[in-house]
Design a protein around this nucleic acid. Structure first.
Lengths: 346, 346
DNA sequence: CTGTTAGCGCTTTCAT
DNA sequence: ATGAAAGCGCTAACAG
């Protein structure tokens, strides 16, 4: 367990009988350098034999930029979906030698400090930075690539992947309306963290209701526990005029309501249709199985990562990812045509 | 958007009218250095005014170790539980200025390379490294703190937090047996990734059955889809001699089986009791609600992080975390006394 | 109590 | 086609 001396480029150079700079050229495939094949071979062999590993710190210091990509996440609870997005990012960046660090955007300490400390190759912003903060980071020549929830703004700059939050709400209403529902409630989460997503989605629901001439949807808050869920379920049943369908903020809210209605002996989807968002791994296994929207979280992750790669490795000539994330409606059994009012059956 | 020149310690020194080394001493609170309060004040003021941020790369290069903690995870799918553990680690390390990088242990590229590149302050090993690999990393004076699944080995070194996988299996059997069940099946996942966890848990189940003189539990594999789940459920019903309870690998498997039995009109827990592991956010909302074991994943994360802190910041004199993670049995409605055989009711 | 100085290991310009 | 040398920004040993 004795400390080992580090094998440096100098050692490799000595062993290969070349200068240190040549080692650097060979190992980094530096363009515009003409080096004989024989020299290259010797250097690579020496590096191999000595088990040489370059020091990231020295490289960063010299180059002024590291091989790190800083992912900045808003201070929300990291659940299944965020984990999936992160997975996509890591899987895409890993093969290119880019290490991912993730940081919650906390009220106190600014992400800017960390940027200047780490000198990341790029920042991946998960809807956590303000325009101003982004500008300040870019002043240091650190590119910022973002996931945005705002699908109402134009898609121009090529530095943003949009996770279309309002489109989700609109898709909910569109699907329910096409099934024949006209009176729809919105089930909001009762958690501060997700306020933003919630606002976007509710906006989408409202907009689409307006577009289709449907009444403004009432909003019911659903706590994340069974008693609270039962309470919310009763509130929904007591709505006057009654609703026949529920657009749920996400699959968790939908699952809780499903559980509550089951215990209240309210038949789903006969009495009420419910649609969720996220298509969680267990959503096919609720009773009834949950109709939902798959937001392709993993793909969203790979897409921002592709934006990062296009910026830090322009030589790769990678194609641009689609600017807006795809949404896939997953029709299962929690949504049907309404049975009480005279709707058109499917 | 023009590039800014970096503010260095030299600039601060000039501004404060002191030498660069003094700046370093003041800003790092270097012990054994006597510096007048006035000088300290001047230096801090200058740093503040110039908005000085030290370069992590230079510090790492000089010190030979960075402010990074490398978390190494086996190449399993990162789900809710892994995310919770990671959360615990990040939340604990963040306030101390330690940045977390996480890396999947992939077959190809070794984690050792990354260690030598990054020179992390420590490595947090999520049951992903072999003894040999750990030894090799420690040769470079990089401490390795681990989460281990092996609760059969002694707890001596103070560098390991144990997530007691076999104890989980044993707790399952103990609880079911105490409810009066004697014939128990084990529901395994049908996923390669989790093979290891699975093996440990099954071992625990088997051991406890032996201890209690119960028959060796049959193992049924449960694919993660409804058809596969129904198939598995039918297999369980067809078991001869019949079982009255199921120890499920985790809450996902348990939920899938619950869904399958529901669709087969098999009453749970009357016909079969089911117990899971993980206490997922949605487990209270299955039907019937799922009896399970909370493994306190977040706490496991904070505990390894505490081991890390104790090693890299011994000056903090932090207390040692408990060596073995707590397990909490969460009794809900999916387990009851068996009704068909003459068992003792609760 | 404070300053001088010598690197940490790498990349890149310039010279040969 | 290859080498010499300068320095990135910081820390710590040592000298005053």
């Amino acid at each position: 367990m004795n400390t080992q001396r580090r094998v440096t480029a100098k050692d490799v150079a000595r062993r290969a009988g070349v200068s240190q700079s040549t080692v650097s050229y060979v190992l980094n495939d530096t363009p515009n350098q003409t080096i004989s094949d024989d020299t290259k071979k010797r250097v690579r062999l020496a590096a191999e034999e000595l088990n040489y590993m370059p020091s990231a710190a020295a490289r960063t210091l010299r180059r002024g930029t590291s091989d790190t990509v800083l992912v900045i996440i808003r201070d929300a609870q990291i659940g299944e979906i965020l984990a999936q997005i992160l997975e996509g990012v890591v899987h895409t960046l890993d093969p290119h030698g880019l290490n991912v660090i993730y940081r919650r955007q906390r009220p106190g300490k600014s992400a800017l400090d960390l940027c200047h400390e780490l000198m990341p190759a790029a920042v991946a912003n998960f809807a956590a930075l303000t325009k101003d903060e982004i500008g300040r980071i870019q002043e240091w020549n650190i590119p910022v690539l973002s996931i945005s929830f705002d699908d109402t703004a134009p898609t121009d700059a090529g530095d943003t992947v949009i996770l279309a939050q309002t489109a989700i709400g609109r898709t909910h209403v569109a699907h329910l309306h096409e099934q024949g529902h006209t009176r729809i409630a919105y089930a909001a989460p009762d958690i501060r963290d997700v306020e933003d997503y919630d606002t976007w989605r509710l906006t989408g629901v409202r907009d689409e209701c307006v577009t289709r001439g449907l009444p403004r949807p009432p909003v019911i808050h659903t706590p994340y526990n069974l008693d609270g869920g039962m309470e919310a379920a009763r509130e929904i049943l007591a709505l006057d005029p009654p609703v026949t369908a529920i657009s749920a903020f996400n699959d968790e809210v939908a699952t809780i309501l499903l559980a509550a209605f089951h215990r209240l002996n309210v038949p789903i989807p006969e009495r009420l249709s419910i649609i969720g968002v996220d298509d969680l791994p267990l959503s096919p296994f609720t009773y009834p199985s949950l109709t939902t929207i798959n937001i392709h979280a993993y793909d969203i992750g790979t897409h921002v990562a592709q934006l990062v790669l296009r910026t830090v490795r322009p030589d790769l000539n990678l194609p641009a990812p689609p600017p807006v994330g795809e949404l896939t409606l997953i029709t299962r059994d929690s949504v049907s045509a309404p049975v009480s009012p005279p709707g058109h059956a499917e």
